[in-house]
Amino acid sequence: MNLTLKIWRQEGPDAKGQMQTVEARDIPEEASFLEMLDIVNERIIEEGGDPVQFDHDCREGICGTCSLTINGVPHGPDNGVTTCQLHMRKFRDGDTIWIEPFRAKAFPVVRDLVVDRSAFDRIIAAGGYISVRTGSAPDANGLPIEKDHADQSFDAATCIGCGACVAACPNASPMLFVGAKASHLNLLPQGKPELDIRVLAMVRQMDAEGFGNCTNHYECEGVCPKEISADVIARLNREYACASVKEGVA
């Protein structure tokens, strides 16, 4: 298939970027989106040009490194997949495809489509962990955990930290990410003792990074490659409010 790509090109963090039109010719339908960009880049390199920079690592939908806002939707038009798992058969011959970085003030562009998502690492470093050794995997049922809680925690733990929630949110809010990372630990007995300090620290770090805050548009839910539900945001709101009250009076 032949496509017209409109790609965001930006020389560096402080450079002014703009959209560049690139023709993508003879793209096999079974190529993934990133493979399509590889083919385009090979041609650019052959012609002595500057290849389009983009992030990727595992290319199997588990690491959360790939990004890209495709036709205005982070990770593109397919539901529940990352860009690396999106295939060209989702597009039609002759289509024009707009490719932009994940845009947010807290995710500065490094170059072209590559953005710096280390703000997420700092949110995790603020409280997204358990500070004592919890040992290796316990015996099944050795530690009773409500089935409901185990399931919800597991669903939250599927977050790969890609940042699509931020990219999709009209306010560039990372609350689906922060909520997922908090719920993942807070719902389990090992995570409970540090629930309050975890939630306070993660939310404060989130605010300090210059992200926006959730106004309940639910765009994040719609684009999350792991289809994490905004229930984790409701839980984060509740836990933050309760933790603040406890901090104030205790």
Partner: peptide, 25 residues
């Protein structure tokens, strides 16, 4: 602060879930 958090606007942005009411609050 929400406006400031998306300093550079998208050239193309497609909504998937939000409503008009939510956007014009």
């Amino acid at each position: 602060s929400n406006r400031a958090a998306r300093a550079d606007a998208y050239e193309v942005k497609t909504s998937v879930r939000t409503t008009l009411s939510a956007r014009v609050m």
